[in-house]
Design a protein around this nucleic acid. Structure first.
Length: 258
DNA sequence: ATGGCTTGCACCGCAAGA
């Protein structure tokens, strides 16, 4: 089973990109973030026409997440979860569903704006709630994958200019500590299981010709429980859709599970 | 130089992203 995650920065604008990328990547499961549309406007029918069933948790203007599953892959949506249980939140940032016997979670972690702000405090609270919930969820589902836009670059090698970014939002010690807590639940960063090209990133600012200069960060991740990490044979970033006209500022990350 | 794009929403500029 081939799984992937992609922050599309508006599904309305990027709908054709998603359809084109599904056709060329042949992924079985695609987790989307930043839909920026309500559930009523989600293009279930258009995606079904391309061979994918879809489940979403949307809202107006901001956030919104979804999971797309290729026809023929077994889905159990009786235990679908939208948002972190027990964490009261208006913002639609998480959806979980069982696909091919594995728990698949699509998550859009809060940006955080800057250390010291209310949004940063919310990011840390959200991370703590997610971690607490995942602890139980991993017991219920030993085969579990947490895919999404984490808005955290775990290490300096995930940052194009670590000096310039030191202590800033997305790389701060508090955020990195929260990422480590997720890993300590027994999750593995699929990307780091394999040899990777130097300076591989998943996000590049729209400004300052950042993509052309490869001035990016690796903030989109696929974390796997032990059972899935063992089954993982490949993980890579696909930069091609970032080169298309009117692209998302994020590139998709793919993992192959045997 | 704390900007630089891009999005949605509501207008003719704003907040928010990362």
């Amino acid at each position: 089973m081939k799984i992937a995650t992609w922050n599309v920065n508006s599904l309305k604008v990027r709908q054709q990109h998603v359809i084109d990328w599904l056709a060329q990547s042949h992924v079985d499961v695609l987790c989307l973030q930043e839909l920026k549309l309500t559930n009523e406007k989600f293009p279930h029918a258009e995606l079904a026409g391309k061979g994918y069933r879809s489940w979403c948790a949307g809202q107006k203007t901001y956030n919104g997440v979804a999971i797309l599953v290729r026809d023929g892959i077994e889905v159990d949506d009786t235990e679908i979860v939208r948002n972190i249980p027990g964490f009261d939140d208006e913002q639609q940032r998480m959806i979980a569903l069982t696909v091919g016997g594995a728990r698949i979670i699509s998550a859009y972690f809060p940006n955080g704006q800057a250390p010291g702000t209310d949004k940063f405090a919310y990011k840390l609270r959200w991370l703590d709630a997610l971690t607490q919930w995942l602890k139980d969820e991993m017991h219920r589902h030993p085969k579990l994958a947490l895919l999404g836009d984490y808005n955290i670059a775990p290490e300096d090698r995930d940052v194009h200019d670590p000096k310039a970014w030191e202590g800033q939002n997305l790389v701060s010690p508090e955020e990195r500590a929260a990422f480590v807590k997720l890993v300590e639940l027994g999750l593995t960063d699929a990307f780091r299981q394999f040899e990777q090209p130097e300076k591989t990133f998943t996000w590049w600012d729209y400004r300052m010709l950042a993509f052309r200069r490869n001035a990016g960060l690796r903030i989109d991740h696929i974390l796997l429980s032990a059972a899935l990490a063992e089954a993982c044979t490949m993980c890579e970033v696909d930069r091609t859709p970032r080169k298309w006209d009117q692209p998302s500022d994020h590139a998709p990350v793919i993992a192959q599970l045997a």
